[in-house]
Amino acid sequence: MLTCREVEGLLDLYLDQELDTLTSERCAQHLRRCSRCRALLQSKEEEAELIRGCFPSPQPPPDFSKGVMAKLSARKQESQAPRSNILRRFRVTPLIAAAMLIFVFFEAYSTGHLPFSTQGKQEIIREPYIQDDAASDYNTQLQNGMSDADSLDSGTNSKSLSSPTPDFTPGYLPQGFIQENGSVAGSPGGEEQEESVDYTYRNPQTGASINIQITRVASGATATNEERATEAADVSFFAEKDGRHYLIRISGDISSEELKKIASSLK
């Protein structure tokens, strides 16, 4: 049996129906027998009623729900806005893709990779080591229907293809030398006719230069000819490539040992 003091402490919870079943029942038993605790309970009920009745109850505005729905609708549109930004970005993407396509197309066209490209034929003009007149000669050669097999070079890289002579790029160069230019002379009209390509390498710091002259000669020419090296600063030799014969003459402001090294790297 609960005492009055115990019940007094439990009355709020009893009134709020927050007591467990057993304690609530014990409280009820006490209240049935104790008029003082019953009066206290009644007083608390009145207080609770008063609190409920006078509770400051500010009301939301009458159009509150409409306001919420309008705000919600606006938020939905806002949340769709980033999507439209994305869409806008997607709209931009085709433009970028188109620009890239044009760029790639132009590059392919300018490098002669397209079958209808005329730029490839002109590229020879842009080659830094080929003079314009040679290029026009070579263009004439192409226009005359000369096949790759008939051309002086049937190599695979574009420089070799566009060059009237095989690639005789030296594997060795003294330190500091860079290629300066190249020039083509002679007529490529027939196999027996001479033609030559000059490559110049220069050291920008010292001003020294190396010249490699490659001359296509008649098939009968041999190393025993007069073209053999005659000067200390020159190294000359005959070379054969793709069944054609060439006289290579290397000269320059460097020692004969260096020249020989270059010659060896060419062979």
Binding site: S57, P58, Q59, P60, F64, S65, V68, M69
Partner: peptide
């Protein structure tokens, strides 16, 4: 919203 606006606002 209508059902709970008063409670929420409170």
């Amino acid at each position: 919203v209508i059902r709970y606006q008063q409670a929420v606002f409170g």
